[in-house]
Design a protein around this nucleic acid. Sequence first.
DNA 1: AGCAAGATCGGT
DNA 2: CCGATCTTGCTG
Length: 181
Amino acid sequence: MRLPTSFFERDVLEVAPDLLGKYIARQHDGAVTLHRIVETEAYRGEEDLACHASKGRTPRTEVMYGRGGRVYVYLIYGMHHLLNFVTSGEGNPQAALIRGVEGALGPGRVGKLLRLDKSFYAEDLLTSTRIWVVDNCEPAPQIATGKRVGVDYAGAWKNKPWRFIALPLNEADRGRSGDKI
DNA sequence: AGCAAGATCGGT
DNA sequence: CCGATCTTGCTG
């Protein structure tokens, strides 16, 4: 059930939408909770000016340069821990930001719900007993796309439709896949 | 060493 | 719209 390395070692533009409908498992105080992923964003390589790796290899971006399947967490605005999953392979810095799970919309709220902190930096999703991602037997949700949030500084890259949202069932039933938002 | 800005959120 | 709150990367 735990997603294998091969799931993450693909281009982030494939992994980010594929994460929708998957479940983040979080073990804390002896209990495991599951959280369905409903919104993600793709950050893709050094050329993507919205991606932290556009600054090159630094202590902060180091984990993105490693293999896929590890966690990239960082503190933003001095208070929110944002959760990302590293994708693609060695030397190709990409990450999928978890912008929303059921019960917590917005990346800051996701970090709070999952009780994340800097100790999760570089956590291995394939061996960790604190956090991992599991597949499910549900059909893949319909997906809406849109521009990434809060990256107006990123020049031409700010308009890339690299935000992915799982449509709720009532909307998906109307067959409105591929919507923009 | 100092500084400006940030993949955000909650309250006016 | 504004403040919180602190890490980061850049400048000097």
